[in-house]
Amino acid sequence: MNDLIIEAKGLYKTYRGAEKAAVDRIDLTVEKGSFFGLLGPNGAGKTTTLAMLTGLLEPDDGLLKVAGFDIRTSLDEVKRRIGLVPQEISLYPSLTAQENLAYFGMMQGLSGNALNGRIGDCLEFARLTELADKRVETFSGGMKRRLSLAIGIIHEPLILFLDEPTVGIDPASRLFIFENLKAMNANGTTIVYTSHYMEEVQTLCDTAAIMDSGRVIANGRMSALLSRQGKGMIRIRTAPDPTEAVRLDVESLPGAQSAIIKNDLLEIQTQEPEAAIEGVLRLLREKNVKLLSISHGAADLEGLFLSLTGTHLRD
């Protein structure tokens, strides 16, 4: 196991005046060099968690170490090693791209040639070199997102936090951001990426935590998370409704790992979907049970979220 670069235990936050905890005693670990996804529906507590990890918000309770420092006692040490790309595009509209980068670069402590070099790199990174001297207020949404991202990495942080960085941008810009993040991760930057798009997290991240209503409901390596679902899930509806006897028969079929009855649905986890489907169809015919519908979904985080919470990830 690699070094842990973020360790949170029992992290807890209730906003003033709120009835429910926004983040409800969660445990999180992020390995150094990993591409970590924090996934969850709107209001799950992703931004609140990120705010605590980046020192914006003081946890009401819990332990939190970032980059090896306790955030309560060594906040400045933490700050020197992290970069945040906030959920909202946080730029000065009347300053140019170059001026925005220069300002935040200097506020991070850069100056002179180091600063100028980084500004050049970041403009390149955001593909805004040509537009360096144009005011940000004239930029498109995607251009602003790219610049916002570039500002987050101007000081080459050890850990980069991104809060839903692909909201409201075109597919080309989105792809471009993905490529860059992957390259940065390959160069050693630890990335913490929040999103409510499960495909994004699934394709980008090597580890992930799924949040819902302030709690972490699943977390671990992406492969492990996905294999909890096997190769996928087959759902069938029958007339009459599936019985316990049918369920046991289905579970013993070759290719089927497990079967559960949820309301009028029979859900079958499988590693070999083709064999399992054939077996189920044969069995139902033998038992004279009428098949009303059958569906199969490949293993994905959406499926995992659904099986954990019984609701869909998207609103």
């Binding site: 980046t54 020192g55 700050k79 992290i82 970069g83 945040l84 906030p86 909202e88 935040f104 506020m107």
Partner: peptide, 8 residues
């Protein structure tokens, strides 16, 4: 918000 995450 950005400034708050920086050593300023």
């Amino acid at each position: 918000t950005r400034l708050k995450t920086m050593p300023v």
